[in-house]
Design a protein around this nucleic acid. Structure first.
Lengths: 342, 342
DNA sequence: ATGAAAGCGCTAACAA
DNA sequence: TTGTTAGCGCTTTCAT
C-alpha cells in the first residue's frame, strides 16, 4: 500500500499542509521536522518522518528554492560561438563535463546544462545568471565570447570559466597555459627536423589562438615557417577540411600541429588513406591527451591537459566564490607526452 | 549606464513590481507585456519591454515555475549501479548526452543532470520525479535498476529510458536490439573461423547481458564456445582487467567480442603490446560505432547504434508523453559495420 | 516545542 | 485594456 503510493506520479499527499493535517500538526512543524531542524520534539519528528515516507511525500524544491533564495543548482553554459555547428558532443567538452558532474555531485549540487549560441542570443550570459535558477555558473570554453564574459565578471562573483588566461583579465578562469603548450609542440616538431609546420585549428577561439601564438613564436625564433589551416571541431566538417588540407597536392608543410587530439586523429586517418607514413614522412602532434590518444596507431604524441584536475579546480573555486571569496585564476602547466607520432 | 546596470549581478530592478512602479502600471500588466501576451496595448508593451531591457530586468524563473507548475526543464538521470566507479564520463553516455542536449535545446528545454548511485540512494528515481523541479525525465541506461524503473512507469507518464527492451516491460524505452547485435557479432566472428569467443563486458547490466545472450545463442547454435570475461567501463579498471584477461598465458579464446567500442579499443592496444596481430591472430569486434571507431588501426569492425537518432527519438517520445500520449518503446536495429578488425 | 502568519516573485482569474 | 487579488508550496520570524 505505502509502496504503491510511493510510486505514484501524484501521491495524495503532496504538500506540507497535507502531511500536517494527517499528522495533526502545523505545516511549520512538518517543515522543521523534515529539515531535521533542532528544536522539534524527537518523538513528533520521528512520527512525521515516518508518515512522510509512508505517503511518499516529496517536498517541492521549486517552492523551497524560491523561499530560501537558493537552488543548489549550478548552471553550465557551453557557448558555441566560434563554430556554430559544433555539437555539444565534442569529446573534450564532454569529458570535462563528465568530471564537472562528478565533482559537483560530490558537493551536493545538481547541474543545469545549457548550450548557447551567442549569435542567436546575445544576452545569453545575463539571462542565465539573472534567471534565479542557479546559484552559480560554470562556463565551458570562452569561444569568441571573451568580452561578454569580462563584462559580467565584476558584477557576479560565483562564475568560473574554462579557457585561456590573458594578462590582466577580470574573470576567474581555469585552463592550461595554451601558449606554453603551443611552444612545446613546435619545439618538439622542430627538434625532429620540421621546417614548415601546419597548424590545424580555428584561431578565432582564444584558446586555439594562444596555442597557435605559442607555436608561431617558437617557430619564428628558430627560423621555421608555420601556416594556420582552418579546422572546425564538428566531425562532419572536420573530415572534409582535413582532407582538403592534406591531400597530396597541397602538402608543402612537413609537420602537423593539431589544435586538438580530435583533429590530430582525423589527420592520422587521412594521412594513412593517402599513403603518407606517420611520423616518418609527416609527424603529427595533438593537444589534450584524451583517453584515446594512447590507443591510436601509432599512439599519439600530444600536449596533455589534466582535464580531471581542471574540473575539480573549477568546482573548488566556484564553491569558494559562492562563499564570498574572490579567487585568482588557475593556469595549469601542459606537458608534452611523447608517443609515436612525433 | 543601462549597459552597466545590465551587467550587474543584482540590478536595482529585480522584480515585476519594481518594474511596474517605474513604468507606472501594475505588476500584472508587466507580466503580460513581457510574456508577449495578446491583449496588452502595443504601445505600453513596447514601453515596458524597453524599460526591462534598459534596467537589465530578468524575471525570476523559480517563481514563474512555481506559479505555472511547469519548469521547462527535463531531468537526465544517469544511474551508475552496475559499476559504481564508472564515471559519468563514459564516452557512449557522453555522446548520447550531447545529442540529447542538442535535441532538447531545440525544443526549448533545459537539462538538469544528475548522476545517481542507486546503492547510496535507493529512492533516487522517485525523489527526482517528485521534486517538482522537472517536467519530465530521461534515464540514460537501465544499469541494474530495471525493476525500480518498472515500478514507477505506470504512475508517471513523462519518462523515457535509454536501454534494452524486454518483452512485456511497461516503461518506454529507446535502444538498440542488443540481442540481435550480439548475434550479428558472433556470426561474423564465427564466419571468420572463431571456435572460442571471449565476451568482454559486465553482464550485470541488462544491455550488455542481452548482447551476450544474443552472441551465446548464435554460438551455441553453431557449436562454438563462448566465455564472458568481466570488464568494467571505468577506464582505470578497464585497462587492468583487459590486460589480465588478454595476457598471453590466459589466451585460449580465438576471437573477441567487446561489449563496447571503448573496451574493444583497450583490447586493440593491449593485443598490440603483447605482439598479437589483429585480426590475423585475434579478431576483435566492438559495439556502438563511436566516431573514433573508424580511426583506430586497423579500423574497428563493430556493431553500430545510431546514437543521434536514438537521442532524437527519446526526446520526441518524451514530448509526446508530456502531451499525455502513451507511447510505445522504440527498438532500433543495429548494423554490422565491417572494417579491419574482424 | 509548536502554531500563526507573512511572504519569496510570479501568473491568472476575475473585475472594472 | 488594465488593475486587483489570490494563491503556487515552502520557510521562517514572531508569538505563545
Amino acid at each position: 500500500m505505502s509502496a504503491k503510493l510511493a510510486t505514484m506520479g501524484r501521491p495524495a499527499v503532496r504538500t506540507l499542509s497535507d502531511l500536517a493535517r494527517i499528522a495533526g500538526v502545523s505545516a511549520g512543524t512538518v517543515s522543521r521536522a523534515l529539515a531535521g531542524n533542532s528544536l522539534v520534539n524527537t518523538e513528533t519528528r520521528e512520527r512525521i518522518v515516518a508518515l512522510a515516507r509512508e505517503h511518499g511525500f516529496r517536498p517541492n524544491q521549486m517552492a523551497s528554492s524560491l523561499r530560501r533564495q537558493k537552488t543548489d543548482v549550478i548552471g553550465i553554459a557551453i557557448p558555441l560561438g566560434h563554430d556554430q555547428r559544433q555539437q555539444i558532443s565534442d569529446t573534450f567538452f564532454m569529458t570535462l563535463l563528465g568530471h564537472l558532474a562528478d565533482a559537483l555531485t560530490e558537493r551536493g549540487y545538481d547541474l543545469r546544462l545549457r548550450r548557447v549560441i551567442p549569435e542567436r542570443d546575445a544576452d545569453w550570459l545575463d539571462r542565465f545568471i539573472g534567471s534565479g535558477m542557479i546559484d552559480g555558473i560554470l562556463v565551458i570554453g570562452q569561444s569568441d565570447q571573451f568580452d561578454r564574459i569580462e563584462a559580467v565578471a565584476d558584477g557576479y562573483l560565483p562564475m568560473v570559466v574554462w579557457g585561456n588566461y590573458s594578462e590582466g583579465q577580470r574573470h576567474c578562469v581555469v585552463g592550461s597555459d595554451n601558449r606554453l603548450g603551443g611552444r612545446l609542440a613546435a619545439e618538439r616538431l622542430i627538434a625532429g627536423g620540421a621546417r614548415h609546420i601546419y597548424f590545424l585549428g580555428d584561431t578565432s577561439a582564444v584558446e586555439f589562438a594562444a596555442r597557435y601564438a605559442g607555436a608561431a613564436e617558437a617557430a619564428e625564433r628558430m627560423g621555421v615557417a608555420i601556416t594556420p589551416l582552418m579546422s572546425h571541431l564538428s566531425s562532419d566538417r572536420l573530415e572534409a577540411e582535413v582532407a582538403a588540407n592534406l591531400d597530396r597536392d597541397f602538402v608543402t608543410g612537413d609537420a602537423i600541429f593539431a589544435a586538438t587530439d580530435s583533429i590530430a586523429m582525423a589527420c592520422l586517418a587521412r594521412l594513412k588513406a593517402n599513403g603518407i607514413v606517420v611520423p616518418d614522412q609527416m609527424p603529427v602532434l595533438g593537444f589534450d591527451d584524451l583517453p584515446l590518444a594512447s590507443q591510436t596507431s601509432p599512439p599519439l604524441t600530444t600536449i596533455r591537459q589534466d582535464i580531471r584536475a581542471g574540473a575539480f579546480a573549477m568546482v573548488d573555486l566556484l564553491v569558494r566564490r559562492l562563499a564570498g571569496e574572490v579567487t585568482e585564476s588557475v593556469v595549469m602547466p601542459p606537458r608534452l607526452i611523447v608517443r609515436g607520432t612525433a
